[in-house]
Design a protein around this nucleic acid. Structure first.
Length: 707
RNA sequence: GGGUCCUUAGCUCAAUCGGUUAGAGCAGCCGGCUCAUACCCGGUAGGUUGCAGGUUCGAGUCCUGCAGGACCUACCA
């Protein structure tokens, strides 16, 4: 029975490029699943777009001097292009900003009002900085000042770049607006909070528990634990870019990006149906209890999609459906580390430029981080392309089609008498289809790929056992060779059906090669005897396969060409060099230059007020009550002080003893989780975002005043 | 600090409710084949399931502790 299905992929944030980690986590599995469900005859609606609001975007756009619209358009286009190149085919790929999607603002506002009417919003009034010059509230990041923890003079309201710590903007010393340098004032502002606790008590917990055994165990356990510590979350902010809060007197306030972003799934869908002239279809789909909604996401998004967004949907009280499942993937790394586009720790386009999309999709599916974080390695990638696609599947197709060209004048033979071995192979194909169906239904993409390749192995074994190259050479044996070839052709047909969700282009090529171009793939058809058992004259056979040059320098046709050893070696060499370089950087005592804008100009006297001294760490131990802090005894020559520093992420206590540091010595003492800190160590963020200490020159003894 | 998950062969991964001798693929080794993309097929070897305890007739699986890693969250330098 055909089902109505909505599939969404996490909305990528329009603030940078996406890499294979994103693709393999949320986009490729969704696309494969959609193709699979469509093969099953289900009515699938596949929605995505860019998430285009939020502070990070406004900051970067303003820093570049680019209008918000132009800024998000740039990344929208870039991301769209990346996804298209991976063969991800959404029904619609739009976004959440007003100029791209005129439906988003109204719908997000409607959700706000509906939630308010249903009593799901709490109102709270707090103090926040306000710029009288600009006439608007300043989000924490727009305020700079002296860090009240370390004395750093260019701390941002949310975070101090020197100590890397999160700050309470209201406590900044000498706060300045980072936009025009004026001094902001504290003013009361009202914000709205989503009452998640009420949802939990009334229905959310029961709903999540009803999903027991259906969701992935990691998602289920994580969410159940999450429920215990639910609190109201703010859903509004003071920002110039976003969806305005639809309340009188809320000028300058917008919906918090995490609130409006998932509503983008709906508004983008509404845009799609409206643009197609069927606006009524939108609510028919999203409010029909029979519709099944699936959110494909990465593990960092679980709480949002399994707790927060359902609360928004049901809390609005308008009958929106809740997700059927939230198939979250774990994280995908690259050769043992996180992808890092800016440092080059990624897959260069040139390295895979001539690898067909289908091969990439297949390889990524076999590496998908379904139950645990997984890793791209070049050798694994090559093994999948060469071993699975070229040697196993590709070569089976090749030996079959070439055999028919050589020994049967290019005409696929009619079905002959069927032997037990033939029947067993048909049965194996049917089993493979059942496995693919079972695994894809349960979001086990790796296993589905394995099932297809296992059939490839069966086919090659059949071919070898039957040895048609022997039988074809005798009069008596020729009919048997013909039947074997026909069975192999039927297996090619089976593969065309089986690989369609993962490798749509390859599926079409396979159908075409045996004279069945345009066949709609269907798992039901796999393993069935051909409906037209006669010979198939005029099949294109190898002529429709891509060309390549083989190891002997001859040009041939092949379904997949191999990924050469030299390329793997070259990439591994590149990474080896890069890794050494990165490790050298890590050990370097010079901090990476930050790209934060230069802070407001200060007078020399202001600077001179800071007393920095060279020192040496004499003792170091972990803070008993804080993960990120170390408690240090710093020798300043004239005295030894206790300084608490948030550098635990970068240094083990024992490696610090004896290390030279720069300490701010006239900073007001501060109690940090129970221990008084008398000063601050100068540090800068490394390229991994973790703090790195600054060291004085060996010629400056402890206690030397630095300026 | 609280929470969720992960650690199984050289590599990448399986193992249903706690149940037979922990299985595949790749890489390795031995052999066979020549239709095919130097492919394919058969065979073989490879394990203290991160470590230490516990529960049980029986533990990769459940419990406790430890080590390492990922993510969420709090505190926050």
């Amino acid at each position: 029975m055909a089902e109505k299905i909505i599939v969404t992929s996490a909305l990528p944030y329009a603030n940078g490029p996406i890499h294979f980690g994103h693709v393999v986590g949320a986009y490729l599995p969704a696309d494969v699943y959609v193709r699979y469900r469509r093969m099953c005859g289900d009515d699938v609606h596949f929605v995505c777009g860019t998430d285009e609001h939020g502070v990070a975007i406004t900051l970067k756009a303003e820093r570049e001097g680019t209008p918000y619209e132009a800024y998000v358009d740039h990344w929208h286009t870039t991301i769209d292009d990346t996804l298209r190149r991976m063969g991800i085919e959404f029904d619609v790929f739009s976004g959440t900003s007003h100029h791209r999607n005129p439906h988003h603002r109204a719908l997000a506002q409607q959700f706000f009002l509906d939630l308010q009417a249903e009593g799901y919003l709490l109102e709270k009034t707090e103090e926040q900085f306000f710029s009288e010059a600009l006439g608007r509230f300043l989000p924490d990041r727009y305020v700079t000042g002296t860090c009240y923890l370390c004395g750093h003079e260019n701390a941002r309201g949310d975070e101090c770049p020197a100590c890397g710590k999160y700050l309470d903007a209201r406590q900044l010393i000498d706060p300045k607006c980072s936009l025009d340098g004026s001094t902001p004032v504290l003013r009361e502002t009202t914000h709205w909070y989503l009452d998640l606790g009420r949802a939990r008590d009334e229905w959310l917990r029961a709903w999540i528990e009803s999903k027991r055994g259906q969701w992935k165990p990691n998602v289920e356990n994580f969410v159940l634990a999450d429920l215990e510590d639910l609190r109201a979350r703010p859903i509004t902010r003071d920002l110039p870019w976003g969806v305005p809060v639809p309340v009188d007197g809320a000028d300058g306030k917008v919906l918090y990006v995490w609130f409006d972003a998932p509503i983008g799934y709906l508004s983008i869908s509404r845009q799609y149906w409206t643009d197609r002239g069927q606006p009524e279809r939108f609510e028919e789909l999203w409010k029909d209890p029979a519709t099944k909604l699936f959110h494909f996401i990465g593990k960092d998004n679980i709480t949002f999609h399994a707790v927060v967004f359902p609360t928004i949907l049901r809390g609005a009280g308008k009958g929106w459906i809740l997700p059927e499942n939230v198939p979250a993937n774990e994280f995908f790394n690259f050769e043992g580390r996180k992808f890092n586009t800016s440092s080059g720790w990624m897959i260069p386009d040139e390295a895979i430029a001539d690898v067909p999309v289908d091969a990439l999709r297949y390889a990524l599916c076999t590496m998908m981080p379904e139950t645990a974080d997984s890793d791209w390695t070049w050798t694994e990638f090559q093994a999948r392309i060469n071993g699975d696609l070229a040697d196993n599947l590709g070569n089976f197709v090749s030996r079959t089609l070439r055999f028919i060209e050589r020994f049967f004048d290019g005409e696929v033979p009619a079905c002959g008498a069927e032997t037990a071995a033939d029947g067993a192979l048909y049965a194996a194909a049917e089993r493979a289809a059942a496995e693919v169906r079972e695994h894809l239904s349960a979001f086990r993409f790796r296993r589905a790929c394995q099932a297809v390749m296992a059939l490839g192995h069966e086919c090659n074994r059949y071919y070898d056992t039957e040895a048609p190259w022997t039988s074809v050479k005798t009069e008596d044996g020729r009919p048997r060779a013909a039947q074997v070839m026909r069975v192999c052709v039927e297996m090619i047909r089976a593969f065309a059906h089986l690989v369609a969700p993962v490798m749509p282009t390859t599926s079409a090529t396979l159908f075409a090669s045996i004279g069945a171009a345009g066949t709609a793939p269907s798992l039901d058809a796999v393993g069935a005897r051909p409906t037209e058992p006669g010979a198939i004259p005029g099949a294109p056979l190898t002529s429709c396969l891509p060309r390549f040059t083989d190891a002997r320098g001859q040009e041939k046709a092949a379904l997949f060409t191999k990924f050469p050893d030299q390329r793997v070696a070259a990439e591994e060499e590149r990474l080896r060099t890069l890794r050494e370089h990165m490790e050298a950087e890590t050990q370097s005592e010079t901090p990476e230059p930050t790209h934060d804008p230069v802070a407001t100009t200060i007078e020399f006297d202001t600077f001179a007020a800071v007393d920095m001294r060279a020192g040496t760490i004499r003792r170091a131990e972990s803070h008993p009550k804080a993960d990120r802090l170390l408690v240090l005894e710093v020798d300043l020559g004239f005295e030894t002080r206790t300084i608490v520093s948030g550098i635990a992420a970068s240094y083990a206590p024992e490696e610090l003893v004896g290390r030279r540091v720069v300490a701010v010595t006239n900073l007001a003492p501060r109690r940090l989780r129970g221990i008084d800190s008398n000063g601050m160590l100068m540090a800068g963020d490394g390229d991994d975002g973790k703090p790195r200490l600054i060291a004085p020159d060996p010629a400056t003894p402890d206690g030397t005043r630095l300026s």
